[in-house]
Design a protein around this nucleic acid. Structure first.
Length: 286
DNA sequence: GTGTTTGTTATCAA
DNA sequence: CTTGATAACAAACA
């Protein structure tokens, strides 16, 4: 599941590869994925070029020379894979094969760039989307749909501590709510709770100042370490080169139901919280 | 055939 | 208004 670290990994990959190259072809294989009218989508991209790669939460925004933005959301199983013709000729890998995390079979949109470069949007479950919007619309979406952005100067204790006020919700739904905090999904929400030593079932308005501070510190530290390791591949995530992330082995609780807790003799439990599978150690998270 | 996986949004109920 | 619960979307897998 691509969350902030996975999307950031892709953003950084693409930034070095696609900026400044003219878009020479746009092929939509599945209309459902594109939220513009297909003809408009192609028209807005063709002969244009990407000049910047931005991210807000789990949403990618690739800036175009015309001032518009291509928004890309990977949702559950989306992949953005880059390939250059040169690399293939030089003996590099070709497109990742189906057995490496199903890809080609689920290619929904192809964007070809000058010089034999190409990015492909794959999505097995077709939850993800691509959409070209104006700079104003993109700004509006960034503003209205996303809460505080971890790993930015905005993420201060002053700003973060204010988010707890008058909220009678569980930590899990607090962390998953993109309008409160941007970028955490099911994996990192559980991991943050573990590192902070608080049970995901606790209500945020009942947390002590000390516990809130721990959460505040663990959110950026867990995310930063995950980015450093190029994200978590649990099911389908791959980076822009089609390679898996390296953070999976660092996961302390997610996907480890029944295993021994990494921090104490206890056993990792799995429950349902905020409608999601939720992993934690009842002994060291309280 | 059943249940499970989750990002996001919609809908309903307390 | 707030919150939680549930379904919906979609496709694959055990």
């Amino acid at each position: 599941m691509p969350e902030l670290p996975e999307v950031e990994t892709i953003r950084r990959d693409l930034e070095t590869k696609i900026i400044g190259h003219e878009i020479s072809a746009v092929i939509i294989l599945d209309d459902k994925i594109v939220q513009n009218r297909p003809r408009d989508f192609v028209k807005k991209l063709l002969n244009n070029k990407f000049i910047v790669a931005e991210r807000r939460g789990k949403l990618l925004a690739l800036g175009l020379a015309t001032g518009e933005y291509l928004l890309i959301h990977l949702k559950m199983t989306g992949q953005l894979i880059y390939q250059s013709h040169d690399k293939i000729i030089a003996g590099g890998h070709s497109w990742p094969r189906a057995e490496d995390n199903f890809s080609e079979r689920f290619t929904r949109v192809k964007i070809e760039l000058s010089g034999g470069r190409e990015i492909r949007f794959n999505d097995m479950r077709r939850f993800g989307y691509l959409k070209v919007v104006s700079a104003a619309e993109k700004e509006k979406i960034f503003q209205n749909n996303f809460g505080i952005e971890p790993l930015t100067p905005d993420f201060t204790w002053d700003n973060f501590s204010g988010l707890f006020a008058k909220r009678a919700i569980g930590i899990k739904s607090f962390l998953l709510n993109q309008k409160i905090i941007s970028g955490l999904g099911n994996i990192y929400a559980d991991e943050v709770c573990f590192h902070a030593g608080v049970a995901p079932t606790r209500r945020v308005d009942k947390l002590s100042e000390r516990e809130r501070k721990k959460l505040f510190r663990c959110i950026p530290s867990v995310l930063a370490l995950a980015i450093k390791n190029r994200g978590t591949t649990f099911n389908s995530f791959v980076d822009a080169d089609g390679k898996k992330g390296g953070f999976s082995g660092f996961l302390k609780v997610y996907g480890r139901e029944g295993e021994k807790c990494p921090g104490c003799p206890g056993v990792i439990r799995k429950i349902r919280a905020a409608g999601r599978g939720t992993h934690y150690c009842p002994d060291c998270q309280s």
